[in-house]
Amino acid sequence: TLLAAGQGLAATSDDAPTPFEAVTTYNNYYEFGTAKEDPAVTAPSRLKLAPWSVAVDGECAKPGTVALDDLIKPLKLEERLYRMRCVEGWSMVIPWQGVPLGQVLKRFEPNSKAKYVEFTTLADKAQMPGLRVPVLDWPYVEGLRLDEAMHPLTLLATGLYGKDLLAQNGAPLRLVVPWKYGFKSIKSIVRIRFSETQPVNSWQKANSREYGFYSNVNPEVDHPRWSQASERRIGEFRRRKTLMFNGYADQVASLYAGMDLRVNY
């Protein structure tokens, strides 16, 4: 069952789940091509999902490479209905399954120097035709501050709509950070690293004026090339107003208390 709005972790009654068909055919996953339709066409037949393991290293007491099953199985899978807001101005509502990232990270025992977590997507030319085009500096890298990573809303997803993740959605393991623009929710994770210094995420590296490290959904801070005040929910005709922190302000605003969100965009 999906968490009710009252539990503070889910979307509101205003948020009907976006159809499965749309969630699985309209994807930004540049490793499989830069058109929205590309990943659904090229990824499923090419991305080898098993065996899959994740290398965890950096500032922690128990680094190591862990098979996907060993990483997820000890924990209880949860269902979360989250809004997803793309930096391009469209949005979806997606029923995910996964485990809170914080619970996964704890077992590696991050030390006192661990201030950030960096994630890396698989980068295999044999499986990912998009890597032949240098649109981004591969592999795709994303990062969170440790407190953001440990936040109960932050999910390591393994499925959506009650099924295992499809390749185009970042199978077999992806991040979901619902109060940040979609590109922060990195797909097909092969490496997690605890670090003392702030990671440089791929989009920030590509264009630091337009994409920052935090990338919190914020209707008041425009992307230089387009307004972030409104969004088009997939399946709806008229634009709707974008909510601060994508509507999760009650849960996450305190993480950024005292920070200038115009500077830390």
């Binding site: 088009r232 997939i234 005709f237």
Partner: peptide, 8 residues
């Protein structure tokens, strides 16, 4: 069909 995002 005009796809998932017809306006776009």
């Amino acid at each position: 069909s005009l796809g998932v995002n017809p306006v776009e």
